[in-house]
């Protein structure tokens, strides 16, 4: 797999670290309750198809990226800096 880092350009998969679903962008308030936190830390939509997940260009610029990707084909349709994702 190759990912088009917005900072560095297209790079091989081996430069990136993967952490999981971009659900991490929506961190609950600390008093949001156990269900909200369970959902955030554990539960996953785990879609067979388009997903948004978080990658770290660890062996490159160090940017955390939100990658829109198809889990069935590995086609990457969008890559943006996590910092720039509006919440």
């Amino acid at each position: 797999m190759r990912i088009n880092c917005p900072v560095c350009g297209e790079r091989d998969r081996r430069e990136f670290y993967y952490v999981g679903d971009a659900v991490a962008l929506d961190r609950p308030d600390r008093d949001a309750g156990l269900d909200a936190w369970d959902s955030y830390v554990h539960l996953r939509d785990n879609p067979a198809g388009l997903t948004r997940d978080l990658w770290h260009h660890e062996a490159g610029c160090g940017a955390w990226l939100v990658v829109t990707r198809n889990t069935g084909t590995h086609a990457v349709s969008d890559v943006v800096l996590a910092r720039e994702v509006v919440r």
Partner: peptide
């Protein structure tokens, strides 16, 4: 180190 970057860029930009 990765965790700190994660916090800065993802959780607390």
């Amino acid at each position: 180190m990765r965790h700190l970057e994660f916090v800065l860029q993802v959780l607390r930009p």
